Amino acid sequence: MSHTAHIPSHRKPRRRASKSALRAGVAGGVLSTVAVAGAAGPAQAEPVTQTIEMPTITSGLATAVAASAQATQQVALDLEAQAHEDAAAQDAAKAAKKAKAEAVRKAEAKKKAEAAAKAKAEAEAEAKERAERASRTAARTTLSAPSSSSSGNSATTSAPSSAPSTSSNATGSAASIVAFAKAQVGDAYVAGGTGPNAWDCSGLVQAAYRSVGIDLPRVSQAQSTAGTQVSLSNLQPGDILYWGAAGSAYHVAIYVGGGQFVGAQNSSTGTVQRSMDYDRPTGAVRVL
C-alpha cells in the first residue's frame, strides 16, 4: 500500500453537466447582447433633428382671462347699482323730510285758521247775544206799555174770557220768554240743535226758559210734564204747548199769545211763528 493511499483528496467534485451548460448559455447571451449594443452604438450617436410639438394652453388661458374680466365688470356694475340705490335712498329721505316739514307747516296753519274762525264765531255769537238781549229788553218795554195804558183806561174793551190771552198781557219772565222765542224765528231746524242759529223743538223751549234763569229738561217728553197742566182755552204767553200725550210728547213749542205759537218745526220750515189752527196741539203746561 502506498503511503498516500489514506490522504483524502482536496479536489472539488465535478459539477453536473446541466449547470455547466446553463452557465455557458448565459455567458453566451451576455456576450451576444454586448456585441449587439456595440454594433448599434455608432448609429444612436447621431443628433436628433425631429421637432416635438408640445400641447398649447393659450385657449384655456384666454377663457380664464375672459371670465376674470367678466367677473370684474360684474363687480363694477354691482358697485354702480349700489351707488345709485344709496343716492336714491338719500333723495327719498330728503323728500320725506321735506314733505313732513310741509305737512307740519300746513297743520299749524290750519290750526291757526281754525282758532281764528272759532274766535270769530264766538265773537259773532256774543254780538248776537248782546243784540238779542237788547231786543228782549225793548220787547219787554213795548209789551209793558199797553198793559199800563189799559189799566188807566176803563173804556177799553176786554176780550172774551173764552179767547186765548194775547201777547200784550205778557209781563216779566213770560214776556222775556216770548221775546226770546220770536227772536229765533227764521233760524234753521237741526235735530239736536241748541242754538244759537239752529234748533230742534225742545232745544228752543229749553233755551227760552234758560234766558230767564229756569232750567227745563232737554227732551220734549219730559218738558210736557215739567209744569202744571192747563187747558188750551186758558193759555197764557210763555206756556209750553205739546203734541202727543203728556210724558210721551213728540213735539213742543211756546205759546206767544194771540192764538199763536213759536216753534222749531222741521228741516223744511225751520223756526216759525204759526197759528194754533195750523197744527192744533194736544195740551199745555205752565211753568211760570
Rank of each mutant, 00 (worst) to 15 (best):
V212M: 11
S202K: 03
S220V: 01
W199F: 13
A93W: 03
G195A: 07
G186E: 04
E126C: 00
L31D: 04
A5T: 14
A89Q: 14
Q73V: 11
G257D: 08
A249V: 06
A116T: 10
A92L: 10
W243Y: 09
T63L: 14
Q82M: 14
S148M: 15
A145P: 01
V36T: 09
S220L: 00
Q273M: 15
A170E: 03
S158W: 10
K97C: 02
Y189L: 02
Q50T: 15
P8T: 13
R16E: 09
S233D: 15
G213I: 12
T156Y: 09
L77Q: 09
R105P: 00
G28P: 00
R130M: 05
V212P: 02
E53D: 13
G257P: 06
A115F: 09
Q90C: 08
S20V: 11
K19G: 10
L79K: 14
S202R: 00
A207G: 09
G258K: 06
T51C: 06
G203W: 02
A5P: 03
I254G: 00
L22F: 11
R14P: 01
T166H: 06
V272A: 04
R286A: 11
A62F: 08
P55I: 07
A37G: 13
G60Y: 13
K106W: 07
E108A: 01
P281A: 07
G152I: 10
A116C: 02
A96D: 04
S154W: 06
A191S: 07
V219K: 01
A87T: 13
A35Y: 07
L288Q: 11
E129W: 08
K110F: 02
T271R: 03
A64T: 13
A134S: 10
A155D: 13
